[in-house]
């Protein structure tokens, strides 16, 4: 624990320096502060200390996983705590090639599904959200209600009918059942999210565009979309993470080991009745977390970019 607490601030400084967004935000942050008083510096230090402590607690389990992935398989559950007596990289090398294909193969499969899903969600959900948030049309209330209903039914009971549907189209063991629903805005979560964000955008902006003679496609593309970048970034991040981690869909629809995505491939290390390759499982879990983590680090810049544009008002 102690070592981890000491190393955190260093990493923190580095990332703060590298992160352009923080610089861009400077003017806003300094709002109201004339000079850095000693009391303020102490307060900021306190804040950092609390954040680091809380953060350390938050990621203790993950640290344990990282440490465990560097231990020989048979010692993982016999050596408690976070002390490493030796550094074992073999979990990474053997885990990478333990399955039918190198682990990168499954990551590519996942990436295909993820990219398709992100594009699908961004396009289809934002279109539907624009209609719900800004347009008047017949049966609007009813359709909005139905949209919410679709996320209220536990998914276990629609698996079988849905499987029948896709197997009849001949889509089992392809990526289509995982991507096409996203292209058709079946994730009501994101539609609703975007509706809420669009409703937060001042209406005068699209009124002004309308007076200038812009039609709905133009208002949507030129006014609304640029203003809802934070919502789009949120959608991208969540779609990435949820699709990347989606186990059940991939389990049901992908039968050929060639088609496995990361979560399904990870389960191949698990054998609940015999010996699970914990070392490989942890090592590859960490490898598979890396892209998600990077997307998150990168994606949150766009959460910030939003203010530059929403500052218009």
């Amino acid at each position: 624990m102690t070592t981890n607490l000491q190393t955190l601030p260093a990493a923190d400084n580095k990332s703060a320096g590298a992160g352009k967004p923080t610089n861009r935000r400077k003017p806003r942050e300094s709002r109201g502060t004339l000079a850095f008083s000693r009391a303020q510096r102490a307060r900021s230090l306190m804040k950092h200390a609390i954040l680091i402590l809380a953060g350390g607690l938050m990621i203790y389990p993950l640290l344990w996983m990282v440490i465990s992935s560097l231990r020989p398989n048979e010692l993982i559950f016999r050596e408690p705590g976070l002390w490493l007596n030796s550094l074992e990289m073999s979990n990474y090398t053997s885990g990478w090639s333990a399955l039918t294909h190198p682990f990168g193969h499954y990551m590519i499969n996942s990436a295909i599904v993820v990219i398709g899903s992100i594009l699908g969600n961004l396009i289809s959900c934002s279109m539907a959200a624009y209609a719900f948030a800004r347009l008047q049309f017949t049966a609007k209330k009813l359709l909005f209600g139905i949209m919410l209903l679709t996320i209220m039914l536990p998914f276990h009971v629609v698996i079988v009918p849905q499987y029948i549907l896709f197997s009849q189209i001949g889509w089992v063991n392809t990526f289509w059942p995982l991507i096409v629903p996203k292209l058709l805005a079946t994730e009501a979560f994101f539609v609703f999210l975007m509706v809420q964000f669009i409703r937060g955008i001042p209406r005068e902006l699209d009124e002004a565009a309308r007076i200038d003679g812009a039609g709905h496609p133009r208002i949507f593309l030129r006014v609304i979309l640029p203003l809802m970048v934070p919502a789009l970034a949120t959608t991208t991040i969540f779609t990435f993470i949820w699709t990347w981690n989606d186990f059940f869909g991939a389990l049901i629809y992908l039968t050929d080991p060639d088609m496995f995505t990361v979560p399904v491939a990870l389960r191949a290390f698990v054998d609940s009745q015999s010996a699970t390759s914990w070392g490989s499982l942890f090592a590859m879990s960490i490898v598979s977390l890396l892209p998600v983590f990077l997307v998150f680090l990168f994606g949150q810049r766009f959460l910030i970019k939003g203010i530059a544009t929403t500052g218009i008002k």
Binding site: N13, A16, G19, T22, F293, Q300, R301
Partner: peptide
Amino acid sequence: LRGLPFYRSVF
């Protein structure tokens, strides 16, 4: 606060 992207990621 400095280092916000880092903290956000940790949390």
